[in-house]
């Protein structure tokens, strides 16, 4: 498997996108996406944690005994999550309140553990850093897609600005949890449809 920057980028953003292709990190992807600003902050937080924990774990990869590597990974991730939590609390207190426990729950977000296990354990630090960063970006993009639709239809706003020019009635279903489930189902449907079509094209040629 080639591991240059371009393959890593393509793989994390589309082919093996953590949220819609691997179904990882769904908890927070659904919970914080009723508003765009929440999702953006959450996405940046996750990007930071995945990138730096991949970097750290990959730099330490030869000195961590295999048997205790899970607990080391968890502790490294937890350390970065604490940093993110304190930063968000200090800089954006309102969003921190809206995100509630979900910032702390980045620790158990399977994306980070997944990148650490699947990539950072076997690759040098720099490329691992970018792998983590791109996985975070892939996650953020999906979050923003879901959040845009949910906020526009649910509140008629984007980033809190009114965009409801047609004066339609807000869709309550987009604000409440079921809306998030339906949105992610639609995104998964679109992406696997596109993948299928590409596969079939390849087979024909």
């Amino acid at each position: 498997m080639k591991n240059d920057l371009r393959t890593v980028f393509y793989r994390n953003l589309w082919k093996e996108n953590p949220v819609i292709r691997q179904i990882l990190g769904i908890c927070s992807a659904l919970a914080v996406t009723n508003r765009v600003d929440n999702s953006l902050v959450m996405g940046i937080g996750l990007m930071f944690v995945t990138a730096f924990s991949s970097l750290t774990l990959s730099a330490l990869r030869n000195s961590i005994p295999d048997r205790i590597r899970m607990i080391v990974q968890t502790l490294v991730i937890a350390a970065y999550v604490i940093i993110v939590d304190i930063l968000i609390k200090a800089g954006l207190p309102e969003i921190s309140k809206a995100l509630g426990p979900y910032v702390g729950l980045i620790i158990t977000n399977c994306i980070i553990m997944g990148r650490a296990e699947a990539f950072a354990r076997k690759n040098p630090p720099v490329i691992s850093f970018f792998d983590g960063l791109f996985a975070g970006i892939g996650y953020t993009i999906i979050l923003l897609c879901i959040a845009l639709v949910r906020e526009i239809l649910g509140f008629g706003t984007v980033f809190g600005y009114n965009v409801n020019f047609l004066n339609f009635t807000n869709w309550t279903i987009m604000v409440v949890p079921p809306g998030a489930f339906f949105m992610i189902a639609i995104l998964i449907w679109i992406s696997s449809g596109a993948m299928d079509r590409r596969l079939r094209k390849k087979e024909r040629s």
Binding site: I23, I173, V176, P177, P178, G179, F181, F182, I184, A185, I188, W189, I190, S192, G193, D196
Partner: peptide, 19 residues
């Protein structure tokens, strides 16, 4: 539908359950 197999359909079921 083919694209909906697996996780896609599961999410729709979960959505209906949540409703």
């Amino acid at each position: 539908p083919k694209g909906l197999e697996g996780p896609g359909l599961t999410f729709i079921i979960i959505g209906l359950m949540a409703l």
